[in-house]
């Protein structure tokens, strides 16, 4: 069953149409890769899912319930919006770790703040914080960062920072984890360690949407691929089929630049 359904999303910035009638759906446990050249709208699409941009048209549903509908007035309160956001996790191209906090504190912060809203927070404060710390440590260990928990972001390599960012996004157990070009800001020798972690998440059936320029990786790890160009979905389908045997001329042209290089 589809965990995520996106229908007829449109987005303008001023008079420029950045997304035109974008629709797709994603099954639970599957990975979707979004490919396309710069300016094709893939990052904007991801930002719409995370409520960092508001689509001008269309709907977004998670688990069958509509969490966004452009036709409805945007009158909801901050609390509602925050709850809806938590369906999605986001890993940014430039990591966006909080520099004043250690790796572990980065992972724990949001969970600690959310815990304050729990009705039993005052009675069980100590226990709740202990659980959050244990959870944070487990996530960082899973990311291969057991010995880097007390390091500040500037003391970590780009690859390590991005793995902390992944752990931070996983901490709130989102239904769908989004990646915005997670390796584009990394040196080539550091992309491998981040891709390995994402590959591991795919094997554990984490539902993911990944905007990427790593075609080989997309082919190997993703179940589905969307190729975008000029704000429209040009082609979508099974990852291996789209990459190995594209049906559209524009997809072929785009992919040829990667296979030649």
């Amino acid at each position: 069953m589809a965990i995520l359904e996106v229908k007829n999303i449109e987005k303008h910035f001023g008079s420029t149409k950045v997304l035109k009638d974008v629709s797709f759906s994603l099954d639970e446990g599957n990975t979707l890769a979004i490919i396309g050249s710069s300016g094709s709208g893939k990052t904007t699409l991801l930002r719409c899912l995370n409520f960092l941009e508001t689509p001008d048209h269309g709907t977004i549903s998670v688990h069958g319930s509509t969490i966004f509908d452009a036709a409805l007035p945007a009158s909801e309160n901050e609390k509602d919006l925050r709850r809806k956001r938590l369906h999605f996790g986001m890993v940014f191209q430039s990591f966006n770790l909080f520099p004043q906090y250690t790796a572990l504190e980065n992972v724990m912060l949001a969970e600690q703040l959310l815990a304050k809203e729990r009705p039993d927070f005052k009675q069980n404060k100590k226990q709740i914080y202990a659980e959050i710390e244990e959870h944070g440590k487990a996530l960082l260990t899973q990311m291969g960062l057991a010995d880097r928990m007390d390091h500040y972001p500037h003391q970590l390599s780009g690859g390590q920072q991005q793995r902390v960012a992944i752990a931070r996004a996983l901490a709130l157990q989102p239904d769908i984890l989004c990646f915005d070009e997670p390796t584009s800001a990394l040196d080539p020798e550091l992309t491998g360690e981040v891709l390995k972690v994402i590959r591991g998440l795919a094997e554990n059936k984490t539902t993911m949407v990944i905007v990427t320029h790593e075609m080989t990786f997309a082919r190997d790890v993703a179940d589905q691929i969307i190729f975008m160009d000029g704000g429209v979905v040009v082609e979508q389908g099974d990852a291996k089929q789209v990459i190995d045997n594209p049906q559209e001329e524009r997809t072929r042209q785009f992919l040829s630049r990667y296979t030649q290089g």
């Binding site: 409520f51 960092l52 966006n96 004043q100 949001a110 703040l113 959310l114």
Partner: peptide
């Protein structure tokens, strides 16, 4: 950087949490 605020937003933080826990010290 705007990315700091956005990172807080996608983690479900409120505007005041973002200001006091993330932006202020920076």
């Amino acid at each position: 950087p705007a990315g700091q605020r956005e990172a807080g937003e996608v983690l479900g933080m409120t505007k005041s949490q973002i200001f006091f826990k993330i932006t202020l010290l920076q």
